[in-house]
Design a protein around this nucleic acid. Structure first.
Lengths: 384, 384
DNA sequence: TTGTCTTACTTTCCAAAGGAAAGGTAACGT
DNA sequence: ACGTTACCTTTCCTTTGGAAAGTAAGACAA
C-alpha cells in the first residue's frame, strides 16, 4: 500500500520523479546522488509494485551513447481525496499521485456541528470515491482534510477553529472512522504550501513562502524542505504583523495589523467610508478603482502598501528564495501590484530584495488539492 | 581527527552527550532511538578514539537493577579557537569540545585592510594556540571566524561586510592558510545562535530565535535543528522590520525600522533631542531614565515598544518555542522590559504569546565563542 | 560490414551499519 | 541463596547501497 516495503531510497527516487517528470535512471542517479546500480535496483522494485513505469519522453537531448530509457510515475497508482472545510461549505477534490485533480465537488454546510460536518465529509469522500471507481483504478489511498485555524497534524486534532468554533476536535480519527480511509488533517495554508512545495511554484526551492491575500491574510513557510508549523501551532501569521499604522482596529483587537487594512472585509469597509456608499461591495469597489476613483484607489494603494510591508517582513526575517502571492485578493491584483512591489523593495533589506515575487491565482479547488497532497505525502515522504 | 572514521551513529551519540551531560548507555539509547547493542558498539568506538570516557555522576536516580555506568564527553579531546571580527577589534576565545572557554584575548585593529586583519587573526590564533599548549592537550582542531554582514559559510567568503567595507573576501581560505588550521567562517549572529542551539538556552528546542539588541538589532532563527541562512544570505533582519512609525529615518534610508528607534545610536540621539543635551551618552541617558526623567524614559519606552513589536513579528511568523533576547542593550533591560513584554503580548497572535521570552546577557566573549562552536560543529555535526 | 566510442543500464560482490535476541553482570529485596 | 530488575555485551543476521565489472544500444568512421 505504501512505500514501507520498499528500500529507503525508493522514496527519494519517487519524489524526484514526481517533481521532475520522466527521467532516465542515469539522470535520477545524478540528481539523488545514488549510484547507477542502486537506481536500477530501486527502479525495478518500484516498477514491480506499480509505482513507476518505463516510457515518456526523456527531458534530455540526443547525445552519443546508448539511448536513455526514461521512467515516470504511474499517477493512477494511488488516489487521494482532499477536502477543505470552511464555515460555509466543503470543497472536495479527487487527485492522483501527481496531484492532478480528477474530480471536484462542493457541498454547502448548514451546520457547524462536528458530527454533521464529519458526516458531510464522509459523504463527499464517498462521492469522490465513486468518481475514483469511474477512473477504473484502485480505491482511495488516503484523505486529507484542511481547515483554517490551529491544527495539530501530528495528533490529528483541530485545536481551535474560529470559523467553526471548534476546540480540540480529533477530526482525523473521526473522519477516518467515518470514511474507512486513512486520514490526515492539516491547516489549510500549510497544506497549500505543501502542494506548492511538491507540485507548484516551490519545487526545487530550499526556502520559500506562500502568502494568501483574501478574507484573511496568511502565509506558509517552507524551510529546508519542511513546512514550518510553529511550536504552538502558530506560524505564518502575516495578517497580524503590526506594520500598518494605528488608525484601524483589527478583528483581533489590535491596531496595525495588515488584515485591518488589506483583508477583503477591510478594503470594502474603507471603500464604503471613502465613498459614503454603505452598500458598496468588493466588486463595486474594484470597478470604481478601475474607473479611476481616487479615494477608492487610495484604499487599494494602502492595502497594497501594507501587504508589501508584510512581504518585506517575511523576506527580512527568513530570506526566502521566492514569495508566492495568492488568494482571492489576487483577482484585483493589478490594483495593488505596484504598491506591493514598491513597499517591498523599499523595505526589503539588502539582498532580500532579490527575493522573487510570484503571483499565482490559486482557485479554491487548489486549497482542497492541498489536502490531497498532504495525504499523498504520507505515501511518498513517510516519517518526516 | 574528526568523526569521519566513526559510524554515523557516533555523531548522534556525541551530540546527545554534549547537550545532556553524562548519561548511561541505556539512556543514550532511549534518547537517540538506537538499540542498546548499537550504543555499546558506538560508545566503545568513541572511547577508543578518546572522544568520551566513563565516569561522571549519572543524572538518573537509584533504582533496582544493575547500576548504570555513565559516559561523558572528554572536553579536552579537541580545542577550537573562535574569533569575532568587528571594525575596531578582534575578540578571540579558546574553547574545548563542550564549548567551555579556556582563554580569551582582545586585540585592537588599526587597519581594516584584509591582509592586515588576516595577519592579526593568525597572530591571535597563535596566542590562543599557545594557551592551548598550556592546557597540555593536543593542538587546535579548528578555527571559527565570525563577522557581521553577509557571510557565505559554504563558500567560506565574506560577501559583504559594511563595517570593514569588504566585498567577496575568501576569508576562510586566507585564515586557513595563515594559521595552518582548518577554518570556517560564519555570520556573527548565526554563530551565536548555533552556540545557543548546542550549549545555551536553545538546547532541546525544535524552533527558537535569538534576538540581539545593541548597536544593531539582529536575529538568528533555528528551525528543525538548523540555523536559517536565507536564500540570499539575508535572514533574521529584525532591525529593519518596518514597525515603528514614519518619523525617524534609519541608516538604511527607510523609515519605520526598529533600529531607527531602538539601536544604541538611535536611543542616544533621541535622548539628546529630548533633553537638549547634545553631549549626552548612553550611560548618561540610562542614568537620567533611572532617576525618572520622563522624556528620556519615553525614549526607552518607545524603543522597548519597537523591540516588542519586532519580537511579535518573529513569533507570528515562525512560531518559536522561545525567543532569547540578548546584546549590549540588555544592560539597560530593566528600562525596556515592561514595554517589550507589553508590545509583545499585545501583538503576538493567538498561541504565539505562549512563546517564552528569555533574557540572556551574552557578553562579547560569547560572540567569539560562537565561532568556536561553529568550528566544533564541523566535528560533531558533519555534513549537515 | 566491422570496429570503436560513448553513454545507459545490469549484475555481482561486498562492507558497513544497526537491529534482534540471547547471554552476562551488578545491584536490590526477601 | 535466590529471584528480580535493569544495564551492558556479544553474536548473528538483514538490509542497504557502493564498487566495479560486464552488457546493451546507438553513433560514427574506416
Amino acid at each position: 500500500m505504501t512505500l514501507a516495503d520498499q528500500p529507503p531510497a525508493a522514496a527519494l527516487v519517487l519524489q524526484t520523479l514526481l517533481q521532475h517528470g520522466p527521467l532516465s535512471r542515469a539522470e535520477i542517479g545524478r540528481r539523488t546522488g545514488l549510484t547507477a546500480g542502486a537506481v536500477t535496483k530501486v527502479a525495478t522494485s518500484l516498477m514491480a509494485d506499480g509505482w513507476i513505469t518505463e516510457g515518456g519522453r526523456p527531458a534530455t537531448e540526443r547525445t552519443n551513447g546508448r539511448p536513455a530509457t526514461p521512467v515516470e510515475v504511474r499517477p493512477e497508482r494511488a488516489l487521494f481525496a482532499g477536502v477543505k472545510v470552511t464555515g460555509e461549505e466543503l470543497i472536495g477534490v479527487l487527485a492522483d499521485l501527481t496531484a492532478r485533480p480528477l474530480a471536484s465537488r462542493r457541498v454547502r454546510l448548514d451546520s457547524r456541528d462536528v458530527g454533521t460536518v464529519v458526516l458531510a465529509i464522509a459523504r463527499l469522500v464517498d462521492e469522490l470515491r465513486a468518481a475514483a471507481h469511474l477512473e477504473g483504478t484502485a480505491d482511495l489511498h488516503g484523505v486529507g482534510v484542511t481547515i483554517s485555524g490551529d491544527v495539530d497534524s501530528q495528533l490529528g486534532t483541530v485545536q481551535y477553529s474560529p470559523f467553526l468554533n471548534w476546540r480540540r476536535v480529533p477530526l482525523a480519527q473521526l473522519v477516518e472512522t467515518a470514511t474507512g480511509t486513512p486520514t490526515v488533517i492539516e491547516n489549510d495554508v500549510r497544506a497549500l504550501t505543501v502542494a506548492e512545495q511538491w507540485f507548484g511554484a516551490g519545487v526545487g526551492l530550499s526556502i520559500f513562502a506562500l502568502v494568501t491575500v483574501g478574507a484573511g491574510i496568511g502565509a506558509g513557510l517552507c524551510v529546508a524542505g519542511r513546512v514550518v508549523s510553529g511550536a504552538h501551532g502558530v506560524a505564518g501569521e502575516v495578517g497580524h504583523l503590526p506594520v500598518s499604522g494605528t488608525d484601524r482596529v483589527c478583528t483581533c483587537g489590535n491596531t496595525g495589523c495588515v488584515e485591518a487594512v488589506a483583508s477583503t472585509h477591510a478594503i470594502v469597509e474603507q471603500a464604503r467610508q471613502a465613498t459614503g456608499d454603505a452598500e458598496l461591495t468588493m466588486d463595486g469597489a474594484i470597478r470604481l478603482a478601475h474607473t479611476g476613483d481616487p479615494a477608492v484607489r487610495a484604499v487599494f494603494a494602502r492595502a497594497g502598501h501594507a501587504v508589501g510591508l508584510a512581504l518585506a517582513c517575511v523576506a527580512n526575517l527568513i530570506g526566502p528564495e521566492r514569495i508566492i502571492i495568492s488568494g482571492e485578493g489576487v483577482a484585483s491584483y493589478d490594483l495593488f501590484a505596484d504598491h506591493i512591489r514598491q513597499a517591498f523593495v523599499d523595505h526589503a533589506f539588502g539582498a532580500a530584495v532579490d527575493c522573487d515575487l510570484v503571483v499565482r491565482p490559486l482557485p479554491f479547488e487548489e486549497w482542497a488539492r492541498g489536502g490531497a497532497v498532504v495525504a499523498a505525502q504520507r505515501v511518498f515522504a513517510p516519517a518526516k
